[in-house]
Write a protein that binds this DNA or RNA. Structure first.
Lengths: 331, 331
DNA sequence: CTGAAAGCGCTAACAG
DNA sequence: CTGTTAGCGCTTTCAG
């Protein structure tokens, strides 16, 4: 059990002072030696290193953080870690952050603005040095202007905020996806979109509209498999029925395929389906899912580079991955 | 960009001292008021609260952590956050931890023992108060004996370590899964196991063996879809071919179904498949996957309860979820 | 090349 | 009910 009622400061842990005593020097010297200062050399340095090895000493990062005013931790805020897309971006962030000596805190907010705000405040209290937003919005109460360079948006652009953003060109990618269907001969191409009032939703709708022309209404989902299934069910009631559907993410595409099959349709013969993201499951659906691959690990790496090195985040490249869920209509 | 070369201590952030000045009291009084001490009341309390609201002050958790010798952060160590099973356990941990005012650090170690060790040391340096191990092993260099009450294992029991562990009875669950197949009439039931030398692997093999009897060899995978696909391919070369296969997790089951279908077999008519975990994708495979549901959110909640309140973690209940991937043989 | 001392922002005796 | 003071463990001037 953590935090017993009686707190024993320093609970027996080795401190720098102990190392100093063992090595017969002062704490300043130990501190310098550990920081790799060239001012500590030879025998002194070796004695200190020996003491560290012997005791298994590790510097207290909390004390160090207080003194240095930096924690070497990053906070990632995202809607849900259960979505493989986000999970893989987090992997990329972790890798890059870890390589730079930074740790990663994950806040899975379930879309709750209150929870987002609470977590984001960690940034203001010294617990983390930087914030990666995968939520598509600024946590309430956070003054991003004053936090310049400490906040980066990933995947979703945040409107009205002048934030460095790591993303792909979603409109162009959606256009490419739909053009793939058009090239196969499809003309009635429906769209299962993300939630209304979401930037990605708008961008992908724009790409779809640009390709299909006209004013057909998309069906809105919420990026879950269940919502894709429901959306597809409603599309199947349309007449004439679409011959193809472009889904704003892979999970909704997986739901859509299930709905189509449950309605007795064959994919891709009766209905072609294309997704977005290329999560690992996309290659294992039946039929395997044609989709747009987003470079998720690179998203993470670019976000960390933006935070730690100030690199302006690039617009990354996406790829159309052609699998068996799309084919010529009525084949 | 984080950490400019010139560090400005206290970089303009509101400190408790500022609140004290605004409210016309001392910092001790502010500290007490913020901690909800009954010793600060009436007008004083209100002036302090007003100052806090006005400035948007948030206490510096690093300084607080140093003083209190506790960080209100938990570290979760896991093989890969990209696996939905782990992701959902993390959600459960986050929920429970968040409700108790704790934050969650995630270390996705990709099975790298060195990375595990480095991350686990955070526990020793005051960055986190507790450690949740989903990795099935003690990070090297960590003296769990000395850290009693600060470490809990989840999902995988750690052999030779006397650790509180949150899990299900994996052997019994595997037995139930295979008995489901036997009840359907299957007799040649193969097993796609997890990686060798893994406790879960051993337990699930034991349950399978108890049900099928005999000494058939399992095929080993590594819990990924790709490995399940490869394992199934090798099983299909056996003669006589199994009529059913019990997979040690859902992802390998998804891979196995793909391999079976690619080989021209129908699931479940020619081959029944049962998985383990009931990740969200299991309900959306084709055919939908029969599986053993593990209560992942509860795993997380129980782990946090063990750490924070010292509750001994219970063995949780699992459920057989019957879907369409299993049926009578040769139907 | 090394040490003494100050201080990061906070909490908790201890006095009053 | 409130303030003074010491100190959590570390880094970094400033002296020597």
């Amino acid at each position: 059990m953590i935090s017993p009622k009686s707190i024993e400061p320093a609970a027996g842990r080795t401190r720098m002072e102990d190392i100093a005593r063992l090595a017969g020097v002062s704490v300043s010297t130990v501190s310098r030696a550990l920081a790799g200062s060239p001012r500590v050399t030879g025998d002194t340095k070796e004695r200190i290193e020996a003491a560290v090895r012997q005791t298994g000493y590790v510097v207290n990062q909390v004390a160090q953080g207080l003194r240095l005013q930096r924690s070497r931790q990053l906070l990632v805020l995202l809607p849900t870690i259960a979505n493989p897309f986000f999970a893989e971006v987090v992997q990329g962030i972790e890798e890059a952050a870890g390589a730079a000596g930074y740790g990663v805190l994950v806040g899975s907010t379930e879309g709750d603005p209150a929870r987002e705000a609470v977590l984001a405040r960690q940034l203001l209290t010294g617990v983390v040095d930087g914030l990666v937003l995968l939520t598509g919005r600024i946590p309430t109460g956070l003054d991003v202007g004053a936090l310049a360079g400490q906040v980066v948006a990933v995947s979703e652009t945040i409107e009205g905020a002048d934030l460095p953003t790591v993303s792909i060109d979603n409109t162009a990618a959606a256009l490419d996806a739909v053009n793939h269907l058009i090239a196969l001969g499809h003309r009635r191409i429906a769209h299962i979109a993300g939630p209304p009032r979401n930037v990605l939703t708008a961008q992908r709708i724009a790409g779809w509209r640009a390709a299909v022309g006209g004013e057909i209404a998309p069906v809105f989902g919420d990026f879950t498999m269940t919502s894709g299934e429901a959306a597809m069910a409603s599309l199947l009631a349309r007449s004439p029925r679409p011959t193809a559907v472009f889904c704003a993410n892979d999970e909704m595409a997986i739901g859509a395929i299930k709905a189509a099959r449950d309605a007795g349709l064959r994919v891709p013969e009766d209905l072609a389906v294309i997704g977005f993201d290329d999560i690992s499951f996309a290659a294992f659906t039946y039929p395997p899912l044609t989709t747009i691959r987003q470079p998720r690990r690179s998203f993470g790496a670019a976000a960390v580079a933006a935070l730690l090195d100030g690199h302006p985040p690039p617009n990354l490249a996406y790829t159309l991955i052609t699998r068996a869920s799309t084919a010529r209509p009525g084949l």
